[in-house]
Design a protein around this nucleic acid. Structure first.
Length: 613
RNA sequence: GCACCCGUAGUUCAACGGAUAGAAUGACGGCCUCCGAAGCCGUAGAUACAGGUUCGAUUCCUGUCGGGUGCACCA
């Protein structure tokens, strides 16, 4: 029994649908400005007919600060069609390049890289401008879309376990990011509140329920009931049939079963909401599978009428349309030395509907009611073939909305196997979160015993929960990652506590100063660490939009970690409060901006920093 | 069997086809009369294997070997 959220890439639907980009780079971003000037140089140096088709000048941050701030590989790309050595092309381009006051004259290095170093005045001016920008340099998208994001989606018959962390945290971060970039995002928790497992829960409720336990710990008792019946039915065919019968009664509208179902859903939802509250995650809708009960039968009829679905062995299926390569046809499978049908089953021979059916109905609803341009599914990689089929059916039905399967890898224990408790059970998410808070509290007691108890508890919550989220988001979503308390709660390295600590240090300056940041005049950036920090701050606006290409919050995490390191480097080299005049003001501005960007970036990750720790 | 995903320092992770493959952690060596040392600086260490495309490959293609996942009435 799986739920959507429980296991391990974005897979684009196999049909090419033209789509607008998800974000816009600010037109006055450094790469853009340099690129425009370099483009002009290209025009001046070579005639357009000799350019490769679709040639665009790319400018990217330099790989190593010793080379400069930004670099372009344009000369390397052009050398072939111009029939000149890359170094010569680079030399001519940099000669023709009009740097203006944007940067120093470009330099040529290596096989033909052109390196750019921003001028001190531009750097200082932009940094000062950042102070007055409440978007911190992040541009709004020029192509806002309505995006429905399907994430978390636990099965309601049992509490969430660690497997749901990835979908839940990743989905929430993508939601926050897409909204900030200017998209309209609708979040929908598509809970599993209707499937086969409810047959088991119904039987267990009737036969095994312990009312005292239920009153004391409803979620725990539901979990116990589920575990017991699940274990028994594995080896007991007649029990399995009995459970199926309970399910059929439920689906036929039996009042007793419906009432029990309502109670279970309500109890379970209470437990889920407590977890989401701790995680600071909310949903616009909780349209579970049961919300589509009425839509399934007409949907199947329509698919039959349209000739997309056909009857087979008493069931209703969607088969391959026979177009295209069998290898990439989600409705075919190679078995027993031949390509055979691998249908998308939408109605069982007993009349029951399936996951596939509700998913199709859900697509219809989201397109119709939310006017969605894009549907994103944050679901583990094992369900890839299901989504391949689902999306293919949507295309056959003429749906042109963007469909994204945003998948991810598994969470492993230290033994590199699926994470389990010592007794071999799945690890409950609620337990993970409370352990995170306890462990964080212990560290705080050690490091800063002087804080009062309430504050310690708040800080422990922020750091504990933040650590769990950051551990998840800082990895490429496809990698199977090892869940390790010591690593994620460590104060060193690329962790939430390290970043929050960097933020705390920016705040500590102003606590000591006794006032909040006051606006300042022109900035003076002279030390290398000041320059490096300012450049990093200015790159926030280039970093955030990139999260949505490939759906990769880990890029933001890397950025924030580099920013924090740049801040610490600056902090070592440059006294702030003990400096004077314009230098002091400039340094205070750097502290303020670092604090703002860290707070904002962590916010996009769903992590709330604290003022003290 | 067939399909998909993944193989990078001892370990955990990075790298739109670009320079000497970056970090972190662990190990070793430095730095607090100085704004939070929960920090900073330095040293040592890696692209599974074999071909191909390319001016250039960790990245793209083919094959091999290893690991994971999925494959008809569950979700």
């Amino acid at each position: 029994m799986k739920t959507r959220g429980c296991k391990p890439l974005a897979r684009v639907a196999k049909c090419g649908i033209l789509r607008a980009p998800l974000y816009s780079m600010s037109t006055d971003s450094f790469p853009n400005l340099i690129s425009q000037r370099l483009q002009a140089a290209v025009k001046a140096v070579c005639d357009e007919a000799s350019l490769p088709e679709g040639f665009t000048v790319d400018v990217v941050p330099a790989t190593n600060p010793q080379f400069g701030d930004y670099q372009s590989n344009a000369a390397l790309q052009l050398s072939k069609s111009l029939r000149q050595s890359p170094r010569d092309v680079a030399a001519r381009l940099s000669e023709a390049f009009d740097a203006g006051d944007l940067c120093d004259p470009p330099t040529v290095a290596g096989p033909g890289f052109i390196n750019f170093r921003l001028s001190a005045s531009v750097l200082a001016g932009r940094t000062a401008a950042l102070l007055g920008d409440d978007r911190l340099g992040v541009p709004r998208t020029e192509h806002p879309k309505t995006i429905v994001i399907d994430f978390s989606a636990p099965n309601i018959a049992k509490p969430m376990h660690v497997g749901h962390i990835r979908s839940t945290i990743l989905g929430d971060c993508l939601t926050r990011t897409a909204r900030f970039l200017g998209h309209t995002v609708v979040t929908d928790n598509h809970i599993g509140d209707w499937g086969t497992q409810f047959g088991m829960v119904l039987w267990a409720w009737k036969n095994l329920r312990d009312d005292a336990a239920l009153a004391a710990d409803p979620v725990g008792e539901l979990l116990r009931l589920y575990r017991v019946v699940n274990e028994r039915q594995k080896s007991d065919d007649s029990l399995r049939d009995t459970c199926k019968a309970e399910l059929v009664k439920l689906q036929q509208g039996d009042t007793e079963n419906l009432e029990i179902w309502r109670q279970c859903v309500s109890l379970s939802r209470g437990g889920l909401e407590r977890i989401y509250e701790q995680l600071d995650i909310t949903f616009d809708h909780w349209l579970g599978e049961s919300a589509y009960n009425g839509a399934l039968s007409p949907l199947v009829d329509r698919l039959l009428a349209e000739g997309i679905a056909t009857a087979s062995d008493g069931a209703i299926c969607i088969f391959s349309d026979g177009r295209g390569d069998p290898k990439s046809d989600p409705f075919l499978i190679f078995r027993d030395d031949a390509w055979q049908a691998n249908p998308f089953l939408i109605r069982k021979s007993d009349g029951g509907f399936l996951y596939a059916t509700t998913d199709l109905a859900t697509v219809d609803h989201r397109l119709r009611e939310f006017h969605a341009d894009a549907l994103w599914y944050v679901v583990g990689a094992p369900q890839q073939s299901h989504f391949d089929q689902l999306f293919a059916v949507c295309r056959r039905r003429g749906i042109t909305a963007e469909l994204e399967f945003i998948s991810f890898g598994s969470i492993l224990g230290k033994d590199r196997k699926m994470l389990r408790t010592r007794s071999g059970e799945t690890v409950q998410l609620a337990d993970v979160l409370s352990e995170a808070r306890e462990r964080a509290l212990k560290v705080i007691e050690e490091k800063n015993p002087g804080l009062d108890d309430d504050e310690k508890t708040d800080i422990a919550r922020a750091i504990g929960i933040g650590s769990v989220k950051y551990a998840e988001l800082s990895q490429h979503r496809m990698t199977d990652y090892v869940f390790d308390w010591d690593t994620m709660l460590s104060l060193k390295g690329n962790t939430a506590p390290y970043l929050i600590n960097a933020y705390v240090r920016t705040r500590s300056i102003f606590r000591r100063l006794g006032t909040d940041f006051q606006s300042c005049g022109e900035l003076v950036l002279t030390e290398p660490t000041e320059r490096a920090l300012a450049l990093k701050l200015l790159q926030y606006g280039e970093t955030v939009p990139g999260i949505l290409t490939g759906f990769r919050p880990n890029l933001l995490c890397s950025y924030l970690f580099e920013l924090a390191s740049a801040y610490h480097g600056f902090f070592e080299e440059c006294p702030v409060l003990r400096s004077e005049g314009a230098i002091r003001e400039s340094r205070l501005a750097l502290c303020e901006l670092t604090g703002r960007v860290l707070r904002h970036g962590l916010g996009l990750l769903g992590i709330q920093p604290v003022e003290r720790m």
